[in-house]
Amino acid sequence: MYQIIRQILRTGIKTEAPPQPEDALRNEVQQISAQILHHVGRALAIRHVDAGSCNGCELEIHCLNNAYYNIERLGIHFVASPRHADMLLVTGPVSRHMEIALKRTYDATPDPKLVVALGDCGCDGGIFGESYASCGKIANVIPVDVIVPGCPPTPTAILQGILTAVSSCKTPQVLTSGLHNSKPSGSS
């Protein structure tokens, strides 16, 4: 136990300041009201769905949980069931073998809900495109609020996409009340 505590103290705080919302990432007019977003933005539950990616986007989603991005200090956490989720974070393209599973996951997510599509493939089908086996972009299968391009998008870009989805177009400052725990990057 001494070794673990010593290592934690030696490591110090690595967490960095989060990015700001970015209106350019919006795909559709926000589906839910600013008032709900105010509450959701303080404690957002995300269900990740891999609908057919190359697993590159998943690598970067994992990084959101590392100490540098530390997504949980923003009140955002990943949950095990769509029934517990406010947001679906979907990577793609949507393979046709995942089409029904994705639709069912969307239906199982309670309203109001948000969908963020990740990666070049999630945004427009990417290099895999549409074919006998691929539906292409996420928006071809379920409604999408925010798209985050990149191959894969960096953790900062993903975080920015998530924060954009939970901030209303009109009052981008809503979310900042949920950021009270953020600290500038620490030293080791």
């Binding site: 057919g52 990616s53 190359c54 393209p93 073998h97 290099i127 895999f128 006998y132 894969p152």
Partner: peptide
């Protein structure tokens, strides 16, 4: 098989140069 998205068919008729990008996305890790 849930992620089957037709990669092998997609390769067919790509040029040798074009195929490099798709090859790098068979398994991103």
């Amino acid at each position: 098989g849930y992620k089957h998205k037709g990669i092998e068919k997609r390769f067919e008729d790509m040029t040798l140069q074009q195929g490099a990008k798709l090859a790098g996305r068979i398994s991103g890790d």
